[in-house]
């Protein structure tokens, strides 16, 4: 891989492998195996996988918390073995913890200083970040007085205070209510437009599908799929036609079968879904017209990211 390509990537891993010693066993437990990832800059990258798939271990290796057994990893063109690779990186852990006696402003400001800012700059940036996460009113509150959702926002402000180019977020939605999740989604979109790369590990697949430009699916430590969400989900050339619930109609069912389709009764309330090949749509409409069945929607049939995820990891 030449240097030019590396510069266009925010995160790269080559053959990244991690073995852990299993207690009481001779054989080592494989946490991550031969992981090759390429995360383009200025994208939102979704890192998916079931519990124990190796997502957090990968993030730990990227951040230097644990050393890879084999392989190399780079962030913004710097080897992760060098602590300076984290100079432009903000990190939000799965369950953020800070000393609870500190105030909100003290926490964010101290993280600004740790990110390389002077005390004065850190104070200014901390105030800006708290405004961004809508926590300005709580600047002087001690962390012990905050809810879980508020802590998550403070952790996000602490990750953003150094103005990082790359944000690594481990389950950022955990502990957030629906309004908080919507706020987070909008914030991630905003950060992407500001040119930041977001490496997002999450279980909330519907959200990932909405915000991510590309995703990687990890299962039992191995990469099983990567690419744009639309590349990962499978689609066929059939359509899903939703109609108002029909009374039992044997002739209609036979006609649908002849078209190469099938009826899914009582799909989502008082409606039926008819799945037919694309070419049979107009024939289906002809069949519905004499029955005066109300058409609700016509959509190409495709997997959701959740369906694809279940298919890939099972």
């Amino acid at each position: 891989m030449d240097r030019e390509t590396k510069c266009g990537l925010a995160v790269e891993t080559y053959g990244l492998t991690k073995h852990y010693a299993a207690p009481g066993k001779k054989a080592k437990r494989l946490a991550v195996s031969d992981l090759n990832l390429e995360v383009p800059q200025q994208t939102i990258f979704g890192f998916l996988g079931p519990n124990g798939a190796g997502k957090t271990t990968t993030i730990k290796m990227l951040l230097g918390f644990t050393a890879p057994t084999f392989g190399t990893a780079w962030m913004l063109g710097r080897s992760t073995l060098d602590c300076l690779s984290r100079e432009q990186v903000g990190y939000l852990p799965e369950q953020p913890y800070f000393p609870r006696f500190l105030t909100v402003l003290e926490v964010v400001r101290s993280h600004g200083v740790l990110a390389g800012l002077s005390w004065a700059d850190a104070r200014r940036k901390a105030a800006e970040c708290l405004e961004l996460v809508e926590m300005s009113d709580h600047e002087a509150s001690p962390l012990s007085k905050l809810s879980k959702g508020m802590m998550q926002r403070i952790a996000l402000a602490s990750a953003l205070v150094g103005d990082p180019k790359l944000l690594i977020l481990d389950e950022p939605s955990s502990g957030l209510d629906p309004i908080g999740r919507k706020f987070l989604r909008d914030l991630l979109m905003l950060l992407r437009t500001q040119g930041k790369t977001i490496f997002l590990s999450s279980h909330l697949l519907s959200e990932m599908e909405t915000v991510c430009d590309c995703v990687a699916v990890l299962s039992q430590g191995r990469l099983v799929a990567s690419g744009r969400p639309s590349d990962i989900v499978q689609s066929d050339d059939s359509l899903e036609v939703r109609i108002e619930e029909l009374e039992q109609d044997e002739d209609f069912a036979c006609d649908i079968l002849r078209l190469g389709g099938r009826i899914v009764a009582n799909d989502r309330g008082l409606a039926s879904a008819v799945v037919v090949p694309e070419a049979g749509l107009y024939r289906l409409i002809d069949l519905l017209r004499p029955r005066q069945a109300r058409l609700i929607s016509v959509a190409p049939r495709r997997e959701t990211l959740e369906d694809a995820f279940v298919r890939l990891v099972s």
Partner: peptide, 14 residues
């Protein structure tokens, strides 16, 4: 144990 070290060690420091 309390995981307060992680956000600190994720910063560019040795």
């Amino acid at each position: 144990e309390q995981k307060t070290a992680y956000p600190v060690l994720a910063k560019p420091l040795d």
